[in-house]
Design a protein around this nucleic acid. Sequence first.
DNA 1: GTGGCTGCAAAATGTTTGCACGGAT
DNA 2: ATCCGTGCAAACATTTTGCAGCCAC
Lengths: 137, 137
Amino acid sequence: MKRQTLQKTIILDALKKLGNHPTPAMVYEEIHPKYPTISQATVFRVLAGECEEGTVQRVYAPGTTARYEYGNRPHWHICCRGCGRIADVSLALSENPLRLMQCDEDYTVEKYYIEFVGLCPACREKADEDKENNNEK
Amino acid sequence: MKRQTLQKTIILDALKKLGNHPTPAMVYEEIHPKYPTISQATVFRVLAGECEEGTVQRVYAPGTTARYEYGNRPHWHICCRGCGRIADVSLALSENPLRLMQCDEDYTVEKYYIEFVGLCPACREKADEDKENNNEK
DNA sequence: GTGGCTGCAAAATGTTTGCACGGAT
DNA sequence: ATCCGTGCAAACATTTTGCAGCCAC
């Protein structure tokens, strides 16, 4: 049976507090000053475990490492291709991709993910500046 | 200007020949016996470069490492959660997710990815067998 | 001839694992 | 008293990088 431990509570609290879809490393940095004996490995293990439990969700953003967020509310994400920052996205499809999709091979389809990629406000601004500088040359 | 090199040709040929959404390591294994001097780093660099050119596509499957495929035909993928094998998928949405999505923050949305996860025929069979064995216990 | 491309090895990064110990049940 | 969860460090896998020489342009 799964055991309740102090480490789990601390890690989940940190995840909840951080909010911004942090990597395991960020969660570790958050708790390390206060709890220097909690190891990276435990952060990885707890997050992966809680993900199976459904307490937390893993975010799969193209081109980034593992990220997690607290809760299991269904929604999607957009990832900035400049800085990797992730924001929540909602999407109300009237069609179900699971029903619409077609595959030549006989896979059992269980779930799907939709991820968006783009630029966050800050990186967009920086990209515009860079373009201007190039025109001046 | 981009240069045409023998390595690029060889790597792209191998990618085309392999077909099954290989990792850079698989491409390297494929060409290594015939061309032992082509390095892993070059495979990574060429694939990433050609991806920018649009000659090849990078496949982002949840929980797997980088994978590539030749060509730029628009389509999606399903990844087996058992063995990681990837198959092509087509999906004809009548709605455009880029227009439908809503985000609290002011991101510039550029593109989206849809990935499916499930079980390939072989892994489904194995999973069924395992379940039967557990019931017998 | 110039400068991008490559090979090699080393480094960086992200994640997993083995093992002994301590704590939750 | 069990035996799961943890800390630690080392292993591991993947990808990136620095640099010198080479080759396409």
